[in-house]
């Protein structure tokens, strides 16, 4: 338990970021018209693709003879990229359609 508290203490700045980001996320979204729900979901989906950065770090730190890390890291990079690129492109297409309708 104390270990967890110490971990928080060590990362207290990040804890602040977390809390502020939570409120920010709520504020930013709270008055969105319902037509935009799906594109917004899709856009948010692309944004959480930031995991790709973690994947890149895993991949970049892997020892050249650590095949487990190499293979899993490689997969992670591919999947993360799919998430980011696919997410943004799909959102763009949705919004494009949205404009045409209007």
């Amino acid at each position: 338990m104390s270990a967890v508290l110490d971990f928080l203490q060590l990362h207290i700045e990040m804890v602040y970021i977390v809390i502020l980001s939570i409120f920010l996320g709520i504020e930013v979204i709270s008055r969105v018209p319902s037509v935009l729900h799906t594109p917004l979901m899709s856009g948010a989906n692309a944004i959480h693709g930031v995991v790709i950065i973690g994947a890149i770090i895993v991949m970049g730190k892997a020892e050249t003879d650590n095949y487990l890390a190499l293979v899993l890291g490689f997969l992670a990079v591919i999947l993360g990229t799919l998430n980011v690129v696919g997410g943004f492109v799909v959102t763009d297409r949705m919004l494009e359609m949205f404009k045409k309708k209007k």
């Binding site: 977390v18 980001s21 939570i22 409120f23 979204i29 948010a44 930031v50 995991v51 770090i57």
Partner: peptide, 20 residues
């Protein structure tokens, strides 16, 4: 990874996604 973008991006989506 002590990585601020991953943190802000992730939490933003986490909270905005929940509200959404």
């Amino acid at each position: 990874y002590n990585n601020p973008v991953m943190l802000t991006g992730g939490i933003l989506v986490g909270s905005a996604g929940t509200i959404l």
